[in-house]
Design a binder for these strands. Sequence first.
RNA 1: GGCGACGUGGCCGAGUGGCUAGGCACGGGUCUGCAAAACCCGCUACACCGGUUCAAUUCCGGUCGUCGCCUCCA
Length: 492
Amino acid sequence: MRLYDSMSQEKREFVPRDPDHVTMYFCGPTVYNLVHIGNARPFVVSMVAKRYFESLGYRVTLVENITDIDDRIILKAIDQGRTAAEVAAEFAQAYREDTDRLGLGRPDVEPLATEHISDIIGLITELLERGHAYQAGSDVYFDVDSFEEYGKLSKQQVTEMRHGARVAMGEDKHAPLDFALWKGAKPGEPAWDSPWGPGRPGWHIECSAMSLKYLGQGFDIHGGGRDLIFPHHENEIAQAEGARESQFVRFWMHNGMLNLSQEKMSKSLGNILTLREVLDQHRPEALITVFLGSHYRSPMEFSEEVLREAEQQVDRLRNVFLELADRAGSAASARVSAFQPGAEVRPAGADGTTPEGVTAAGSTASILQKVATRQEAFADAMADDLNTAAALAELFGIAREANAALAAGELDADTAAQMRAEMVKMVHVLGLDAVAGGNDHVPDEVAAMAEERQQCRARRDFARADELRTTIAQCGYEVRDVPGGYKIVRTR
RNA sequence: GGCGACGUGGCCGAGUGGCUAGGCACGGGUCUGCAAAACCCGCUACACCGGUUCAAUUCCGGUCGUCGCCUCCA
């Protein structure tokens, strides 16, 4: 596959460091608040990338940190009269809960900064020994001038950056661009013992320390939002390569920002939308579909409207899976009308004939050929820098072809089952397994109402039948009349 | 000022030197007690101006416009 690398600024053939093992590190959140939908994008991107590599046969180790000590956490704690640890624990848990709802699974390792203080101290010590860092009072700073390649990721000139760099009160840096590796504790601040006195790690160092610990020097992919390129990832490189004097990461993968009503989401603009809010209103598949609908590197518009459209897309996929399952005879989502004991819902005929009795052998071969062609296109799209939008389009292409074949009565049970199985693989890679799910258990009362409605229809009591449909809809189900019976489909 | 991205049909959003993206919305039709689902047909674009080319939405140059980073930020 080819993967875009922000360092070389081009797509390059992706070959992992280890022959059969892909190593990935994505920057997770700093837990001082509920995560917003912008935080969800790299989470989804990383999980889909993991699934894609697994589909290629690689073993994948995905590490995604949780930064649980930081100035923002301390500020929040002071504000709320709690300890920083309490604040961090609360929002780390909220983060896990919210991202769990996406149904994508969890990264293989989710290290906490505070559980890696000794690794961090170790890395800072290496930097001091190699002359890339210096102690100033109770703080330790990275000496940017000592690292010649500083700026190579962000393509910033050090001389240019000096103008804008700021120095906060109380800092004792040698140069404005130098950044803190270790911050000595002020009274009342959380602190860990270190060779430089009690304090806490600076932002950036935890990611260098933890990625190196779990994945080793020169691991494959390091990702996160574009806005992390500078200074976060630039500093990670300086720390890791300064200490170890060899390449830190092979591919830098950065996702684009989300815009809300034409503007970047940011707290100062007051337009943040939390992941929790979105998932309270929309199915996780819809949110994932929104993300997959545009390329991961592109900035994207995010709105209620795109979520609604995605809901429609999810329904379209769910419907075709339902129909294929019915035709394959493996799902109980179709109910035979009680007043017509012998009726089958759209009998497919396991003998390979259509309901009209025309043999379907020829069209069966051609539709499976079409599926194979689209699967190839799907694979090509994913192999081209994870072009999920194009991959998704192939899935919709199969859906249309499947529906057309179904409508024409050209799909036998066996072919339907095969098509469905192939599509299940595809949606799995995209993290959309949920669209392939059945109806689970329809509540008894809903089933009873549907049955009663069917009997009303038989009596031509349509007023009562329509009333029941409305009531069923209020329960979150839809009754669809089909030849010889009806179906109950969950709508939310 | 420096670095970078981008301008595609009503909307979102892929992609390509000549050949259908896809979804949503909309219009017509089929099916149907109603409805839904689904199918068929239609709507067909590439900011602007030059240049290269047999041929450019796709390459090159410029103009205009939008956005991100350079400061905490996914």
